[in-house]
């Protein structure tokens, strides 16, 4: 018997009698929080900062003031090509992105309860981008903010992503004596623009 068959047969043999799958009733989680306010609070709690922007051009303009001296920039926003200093098509391997200073990406939705933003693969030309960049800038539309992860997954249910990530704040660690240090392996900072 292969290990696969062995494991499956033992699981079958040893499992308890069928237990029904509980129904998720979203009513019990309802609270009186205002979505956009809660979202801002939670992004900030996670170590990020939230800004308002009227257009994609406005996002880039604000980034240029925030990071005046960066050398390697890349944005996927439409009409902001002049901001880019790298051509992804000419990259041989993702490792060459090691010096990426600022990356601007669009997120599909935001989650108010935890400040997380969903970045599916159709928003990222290369999977490693949001992790390897020093400063990460995410742009979302205000109307895409949902209250809880439950609603986020309801929306995702209809999409097919080969890869996707919820990002909440910049990378961080508290592995040395529980002292919070922002900037572990991923981004050193996260800015979120809400349009």
């Amino acid at each position: 018997m292969s290990s696969r068959e062995h494991i499956l047969s033992k699981a079958k043999e040893n499992k308890p009698e069928a237990i029904a799958l509980p129904n998720i009733d979203l009513e019990v989680f309802k609270d009186a929080k205002v979505l956009s306010e809660e979202f801002i609070l939670k992004v900030e709690t996670a170590g990020g900062n939230v800004l308002n922007a009227t257009s994609d051009k406005d996002v880039i303009a604000q980034i240029n003031t925030m990071f005046p001296d960066t050398k390697v920039n890349f944005s996927t926003l439409e009409g902001t090509e002049s901001f880019n200093t790298v051509d992804l098509n000419k990259l041989e391997k993702p490792h060459d992105l090691e010096n990426l200073d600022v990356l601007v990406l669009r997120g599909d939705l935001g989650v108010a309860e935890n400040g997380a933003i969903w970045i599916p693969d159709h928003q990222i030309p290369m999977r490693v981008l949001p992790f390897i960049s020093k400063h990460l800038v995410l742009v979302i539309k205000k109307e895409t903010i949902v209250p809880f992860l439950h609603q986020a997954y309801q929306k995702l249910g209809n999409t097919h992503n080969d890869f996707g990530v919820f990002i909440s704040g910049p990378s961080k660690t508290a592995d040395i004596e529980q002292s919070l240090v922002i900037g572990a392996h991923g981004a050193l900072s996260l800015s979120v623009f809400v349009q």
Partner: peptide, 30 residues
């Protein structure tokens, strides 16, 4: 199901470190 992640990711970060969710929750499919 994928929708069950809504339950577990809400519980995990908060229970582990008091974060409302971990910084990265990466969904690998292909």
């Amino acid at each position: 199901k994928q929708e069950h992640l809504g339950v577990f990711l809400r519980l995990l970060g908060r229970s582990a470190t008091g974060q409302h969710i971990t910084t990265y929750s990466s969904h690998f499919k292909k």
